[in-house]
């Protein structure tokens, strides 16, 4: 059992690269990702209690709210942030559908949409809506986001 109060080094995989970072055990994954060592500021703090989804990242391909996860919980796990998306279809879909305005919620929606796009076999309009309900966008009418995600999550209707 590691110390509960002192900084500790842990290892995990971030966007395909093994990384070692020194953290306080009480740090949220959001805090660690955005900190100086990793500098991955694509995940945004919007509420820091799991309500808004702006900080969503993938842990082992599953979207999670990084404000609700303590960094020690993801030791040795694979994290994907928006910076880890390289020309993913969801990114072009968001551009094509004008699925953002201010852009602050966009990273979170992209990560949920990307996860859905990796599992098209189980895709459906109902699942897309259900998964996207975890995130809030205050600028758009949601239709643009739904259309963008649908085009990669259940492209055949």
């Amino acid at each position: 059992m590691k110390s509960l109060t002192r900084p500790e080094q842990i290892s995990f995989n971030v966007n395909g690269e093994p990384r070692d970072v020194v953290i306080y055990p009480g740090e949220t994954l959001l805090y660690t990702l955005r900190g100086d060592a990793l500098g991955l500021t694509g995940a945004k703090p919007g509420c820091e209690n799991g309500d808004c989804g702006a900080c969503t990242v993938l842990v082992n391909e599953i979207p999670v709210k990084s404000c609700m996860v303590l960094t020690p919980e993801v030791e040795d796990q694979a994290i994907t942030t928006v910076e880890g998306l390289q020309n993913a279809p969801i990114q072009q879909a968001f551009l094509d559908h004008n699925a953002f305005q201010c852009g602050y919620c966009t990273s979170g929606f992209l990560m949920v949409g990307h996860a859905l796009s990796q599992d098209v076999d189980n895709g459906s309009p109902e699942r897309t809506v259900e998964w996207l309900r975890s995130n809030i966008c205050r600028c758009t009418g949601y239709q643009e986001i739904y259309d963008a995600v649908s085009s990669v999550a259940h492209p055949n209707g």
Binding site: R34, T41, A43, P45, T81, E83, L95, N98, T106, S107
Partner: peptide, 19 residues
């Protein structure tokens, strides 16, 4: 036309005050 900053907003490269 797309927003000038659109590519940055879909890659996490758009920087806000706290970034």
């Amino acid at each position: 036309v797309p927003r000038k900053e659109a590519p940055n907003k879909v890659t996490g490269r758009a920087r806000y005050t706290d970034d």
